[in-house]
Design a protein around this nucleic acid. Structure first.
Lengths: 325, 325
DNA sequence: TATTATATGTCAATCGTTTAACATATTTTC
DNA sequence: GAAAATATGTTAAACGATTGACATATAATA
């Protein structure tokens, strides 16, 4: 690969001058600009980002830490993060913690070793205190982390309330909240809080059941769901904390000959593509994933440029009515 | 962040000696090893990968180019690639071409600028001749590329045959093959070839219809499917070239009051999680995504180490019988 | 005792780019 | 005609790690 030196030689200029046109510093004539452009094209020159990063002590890479990639919510999130990052000239270093603390920590070390410009954390496995003394921006998405630079969440509580109101309006008499496996405090817990709050206000009994961590890890909730539903045969409404759980709940209902939505109404959370591929199609709370991703990248970019950024951004959610209520 | 120099000072040794223990070269005493380990721990030292990459002229990063991330097949593929890469000490630079040639090329430039150790191409948007003169391994997955170092595919033709045989065995009299939008020659086309071959042999009429590129890009095939099915109301069997198409075909059947599998039998391709979340659950051809990903990473690693690698690896597929046939 | 193996040090170059400091032109403006 | 602006060059250090060449010292072995 051609280096700056080669370009300088080809253009009949010095590296200093070439570097000046590349970085647009100091006085440069149109003539010099043209010569450099020609030489670059001729040699198919591309600046070595590694050398640049070494010198500037930071790369234009963003480390994105997620607990899963296969999970449709995270796939959607990663997709939107990549797109927003690309537009701003950042690259994505994909870090899959696989829901383990060890791997999350290992990946944070790797990100540090590679001098990433910042970190986006979508995972609960990251130890809370790991960022003290870290001098790069750390943005969390749907994750509470004290030392983070900024956090982006959706209005989880309101989402839970919306779900409860809808189910109660549909005349449900006994509700089930299918929560998350995480023991760590996280914003998604507010979905349950909001849900139960409304249930209590309206006097509708509501039971929360949380899956095992193993279910989350391999995305199969079937067995757990079957046990839960058999235990609560009198329930007539479900609020699932994710669409993937809701989709499997539909399958389990079918297995147990419970008709959705006649005998059982279901509301999901996320509104990923899957929600319109189930039968019946899933009524769910729409999480503005695209906007959350864009905001996260913007926050990171701003923070990296030493701008002042909002400590927390809460985005609204809304219900998408399909066929399960 | 602490540097090698700091570690050397802390350990009371020179950078040369410290570098020697880090890279395990030459003579080193146990005493020195311990001193270095202690100093590293005390300073929380992590070697600067950027500097290493600059010196060695290559990073341990792999560029993964996909046309989509949200697409369940690619999400699954990326997930498995990441896992295999992690085990071998590689990082993933995630490149989403968004099905455009421009962005694919741009990302290849970025990968080059960042001196990636190699490239994994899962996308058809990459110009065939771009790799001439590239000195890093390029592994393709389900993509024909003349200049690639190696390619990994599943037995697409056999998958198509399996699907045809199954549908004909189920007494289908007129079949539809829902192909791909890609105009570029790619291994997945063999799915149709195998399928049509059997249909012809068995004397069962079969029509191929290909979606618009737009459908592929936003993953919504509904409208197109509705037109197709209305045009071919006499068809009683469908082979879809991906599960995502098959899942939407199920939805469209429901909309048109066509019962699956009674009036219409459907076979998908890929066997991603989605396949067991549709109603009825999807009978599909299982593509060994995990194995393909692992082999691709191994090939890349071997090729990077100048080992001789297989030019093409074809993995078997099999049918997963669920409920749509 | 001489020789070899073991262990560490010194020094400096290299990877490719950036950048500060300073020198030296030519051109423009007051 | 002097001062200022414009344009480019020279030189060298810096980013952090690696590595080759060579020197030196101690320990083990013949």
């Amino acid at each position: 690969m051609a280096t700056l030196k080669d370009v300088a030689r080809e253009a009949g200029l010095t590296v200093t001058t070439v570097s000046r046109v590349l970085n647009n510093r100091g006085y440069i004539s149109e003539d010099a600009r043209k010569k450099v452009a020609d030489a670059m094209k001729k040699l198919n020159y591309r600046p070595n980002e590694v050398a640049r990063s070494l010198h500037s002590k930071k790369s234009n890479t963003i480390g994105v830490i997620v607990p899963h990639i296969r999970h449709p919510y995270f796939a959607e999130m990663i997709s939107n993060l990549e797109n927003a990052a690309y537009k701003k000239g950042y690259k994505i270093l994909l870090c899959n913690s696989q829901s383990t603390k060890e791997r999350a920590e290992e990946y944070i070390d790797i990100c540090n070793s590679n001098r990433v410009a910042g970190l986006i954390i979508c995972s609960t496995d990251v130890p809370v205190d790991i960022f003290s003394g870290m001098d790069i921006p750390v943005i969390t998405i749907e994750r509470a982390l004290d030392n983070a630079t900024a956090s982006v969440v959706c209005d989880n509580k309101s989402g839970g309330q919306l779900a409860a109101e809808r189910l109660i309006k549909a005349d449900c008499k006994k509700l089930l909240y299918l929560g998350s496996s995480s023991s760590v405090e996280m914003p998604a817990h507010q979905r349950g809080t909001g849900f139960k709050e409304i249930c209590e206000n309206e006097g509708v009994p509501c039971i929360e059941v949380d899956p095992e961590e193993a279910s989350y890890n391999n995305m199969t909730y079937n067995e757990w769901l079957e046990t839960v539903m058999k235990e609560h045969m009198d329930a007539d409404g479900i609020f699932a904390s994710s669409d993937i759980i809701a989709a499997q709940a539909i399958q389990v209902c079918r297995k147990l000959s419970i008709h959705v939505p006649e005998d059982m109404k279901i509301v999901g959370f996320d509104d990923v593509v899957l929600a319109s591929l189930t039968t019946p199609q899933l009524t769910t709370i729409h999480q503005p994933i695209k906007e959350m991703a864009e905001i996260a990248i913007n926050l990171l970019d701003d923070a990296a440029k030493e701008k002042l950024v909002a400590k927390q951004t809460i985005l609204p959610v809304f219900m998408v009515e399909r066929e399960t209520v």
